[in-house]
Design a binder for these strands. Structure first.
Lengths: 69, 69
DNA sequence: AACAAATGTTAGATATAGATAACATAGTAA
DNA sequence: TTACTATGTTATCTATATCTAACATTTGTT
């Protein structure tokens, strides 16, 4: 799974910390998300998408390999 | 947050167990999701949406109150 | 009625998301 | 150079999603 968080965040000229504050999580959490280091909860995914004025399906891109297991 | 899982599952004439097997989780997990008893991971949300041939944003409906905290 | 299938619900265990704090690294500006 | 800001990364901790197993309740069918 990859994400367009970094791309959209840059478009809004926000730092990881700016986004984290708006979303209500830690800066590291945003960093890990951008790196694909974990699989967020749906609620967090929604909050990030909402903050970046997009949808979950636009923000997170799944690939076939994500369906395995 | 509410979900249309039950509605779509009925449309495909699937039991909770049928859906659970396709998605790779337990029947209870689907039951709890339908009841809004917890907040799934993005990956699980995607798998359920994919199995029901819809998108995450169509399947899970957020309300303003979901943004609090 | 009685039986079966689907769903509800609970309790305890395990895996992992996310918090926290700390330190490292890269870039930029004085 | 120093200093600062943004990001990377690690380790430990806590909260919670999900598993597992069991039993209860509902609903349909005979």
């Amino acid at each position: 799974m990859r994400t367009r968080i970094k791309e959209l965040r840059a478009r809004y000229d926000m730092t990881q910390e700016d986004l984290a504050k708006k979303v209500g999580v830690r800066r590291e959490t945003i960093g890990f998300l951008e790196k694909g280091k974990y699989n967020p909860s749906l609620k967090l995914a929604y909050k990030v998408a909402n903050t970046l004025e997009t949808t979950i399906d636009e923000l997170f891109i799944f690939e076939d390999s994500d369906l395995e297991q």
